[in-house]
Amino acid sequence: MKVLGIETSCDETAIAVVEGKKILSNVVASQAAAHAPYGGVVPEIASRHHVENLPVILEMALKEANISLEKIDAVAATHTPGLLGALLIGLQFGKSLAFALQKPFIGVNHLEGHLASVFLENEELEYPYLGLIVSGGHTHLYLVKEFGCYQLLGATRDDACGEAYDKIAKMLGLGFPGGPLLDKTATRGNPKAFRFTQPKVGECLDFSFSGFKTAALLFVQKQNGNTSQQFVQDLAASFQEAATNFLLDRLVKATKQYKLKKWAIVGGVAANSALRKKIAAVSSEYDCRTFIPSLPLCGDNGAMIAYVGSQYLKKGFASPFSLNAQATSELPS
């Protein structure tokens, strides 16, 4: 079954064609911007850019998969959670395509897409597992019991992890995209130069990142404008050390609590090199198996949406054309 997956929950316009676990194409607007013949595909924030991007991205996804639109067996699109205006555009586009092609349509939860993204590249992963979604908009830890069955163990109480990265990167004048630039800068700094207190979230498995942001701000203010390259590198390294330690601390705590030694770390921040290194070290210390998507599947993409859609369709589910977008939602438990 060849499923077209559409994702427009936030900034990225993304479309993929997936057959089973095989990704036939996976096109994201920000990457597509580099493709000269399709120049003008700009990953801007406003929803209307999804409208402009979608037909172009669709054409690219079909071409890359080497199939015609008529050969698509079903259409999946993200319908929740995210920015309502952005979600609506991808959802309408997907429903219209399915309607015109007379093929089944299925709405997919964005977070469920991320949690399942690890299956596209791994034959060995089996349920249940601990799924950590860590990105610019989300920091959620789930116990994934089986397909379609999720227990939220903890979530951020303030800023998302990727958001803290971006805001601290901006404070340090590192430019955009802040997360990857901070990651790169940190490799040349001393992670022990500044002490970041670990957030006080008590016994639960919640996250908090705004304290790191405030601490970084105080370190910057103390410099009175004299932020040398060394200072920037050291602060980046120290923050990164503290933030990744905190994420790992939550995972280890959940591992002990739920006696579950399988981790899936997904979402944009899963592309962070320091986090990937630390996960490798800590997981072997606790004898855990980890599954992290390759870089193109860490950020928002259509492949994970197509995959989850195909799983639901296989089980006999499909969405009505009346399905609406929803800004906020919880995963089925």
């Binding site: 929950s9 959670p81 920015l83 610019g136 109480r157 800023d159 998302a160 906020t328």
Partner: peptide, 17 residues
């Protein structure tokens, strides 16, 4: 309080019904 109120910086709008 089932959905904690968090920063909407990335998604731009969070809705709490």
């Amino acid at each position: 309080d089932t959905i904690p109120v968090s920063s909407p910086t990335f998604v731009l709008i969070h809705e709490y019904p």
